[in-house]
Design a binder for these strands. Structure first.
Lengths: 187, 187
DNA sequence: TTAATTATTTATCTTATGTTAAAGGATTAG
DNA sequence: CTAATCCTTTAACATAAGATAAATAATTAA
């Protein structure tokens, strides 16, 4: 869990006791490419951290598979619209490569907030940063053509295009696979 | 500031001391229709709560005014991409009616987090809820036609359409004013 | 390794939305 | 109250992206 605690340090430094408390409610999970880490309809009670692999959050709209977001090594994943509301999620988390993740029990984590304000602060900051990213993404979606969005992704997150099947990238960009092919073929 | 503390109760109940501490770093601001509460290029150091009025966050893309979001009575506004990063914001907050807001000094608020964990928790929950709304909005923007987005707004937030000039609604929906007129004219 | 499946591209046609311009309404300022 | 400004709609045309289908290309499983 070294990577995880390295990651935490970016946001808030934890005491040994706090680190131990987090270790006690966490476990390592390995999962094969293509499998769902969490299924649709399930209420999110786990926060994941990716040690190795790639994952996406996806859902179905009118029977069509739509990717909401991608996650790579050294990042937290959670379906926050379920985690923070306690409602079942209409979304699933799937890994796109054989992966290893740290699974943190969210209910136990939230209990730790009472005893360790430093842990509450840590996760406050983590989710504030995630919130900022989401707000920035909205800006990217307003009034940008599909081609602009593709080019932005190419320059800001080329790893997405290297490691993720294009059909998932297309729905992430809000376009069809056919349109994405057309754009890649240079117009 | 009654409305504000009523609003807070939805998220976390505060002690009298904590409430007093917040009152001490807050002030009431009245501002005329059309004025900017915070200008573009300014680093966000204030969290606002709307007692009365309507506001929007907007920015310019290629010289075109784009509305990122609307805010009504009984809600918090902040340009979180600046507030949580300390960087200047490319966005402004403007009121669309004569308005009255509570201005909370953010730096002083963040200092209160150390003495009042209950205040840190309160704002953690407030921004978690705002984060969830933003994630839901992304879902609304992926693979929905302009007409679907207009109809969704009409049923979920009719007050936007009642109180806000349509030219601002158009950019919020990610379309031109002309397209919005066409959609409203029933196709 | 080969067959089967899955992913990507290409082609054609259709449609929604953008662009520009102009006219009609509504609101604001003097 | 009137003129000036700003907002909204309408029209005509251009273009980006959707839909469907079929052809390649790449992966996976037997």
């Amino acid at each position: 869990m070294n990577l995880l605690f390295q990651y935490f340090k970016q946001f808030n430094t934890l005491s040994k006791e706090a680190e131990a408390a987090i270790v006690a409610i966490s476990s390592i999970v390995t999962i094969k490419k293509g499998k769902d880490l969490q299924p649709i309809g399930h209420t999110c009670k786990t926060i994941y951290f990716i040690n190795k692999g790639v994952a996406r959050i996806y859902y179905f709209k009118d029977g069509i598979d739509i990717t909401e977001s991608f996650f790579f090594e050294n990042n937290i994943i959670a379906r926050v619209e379920s985690l923070f509301t306690g409602k079942p999620s209409r979304k699933a988390i799937q890994v796109l490569e054989d992966s290893e993740v740290v699974a943190i029990n969210a209910n136990q984590l939230f209990k730790l907030y009472d005893t360790f304000p430093e842990i509450e602060r840590l996760f406050r900051k983590i989710f504030e940063a995630a919130y900022v990213e989401t707000v920035n993404r909205i800006e990217g979606m307003q009034f940008h053509s599909a081609e602009e969005r593709y080019n932005a992704l190419l320059s800001e997150a080329p790893n997405v295009l290297m490691r993720v099947p294009l059909k998932y990238v297309a729905s992430y960009l809000g376009i069809t696979q056919v349109s994405l092919s057309r754009i890649r073929a240079h117009r």
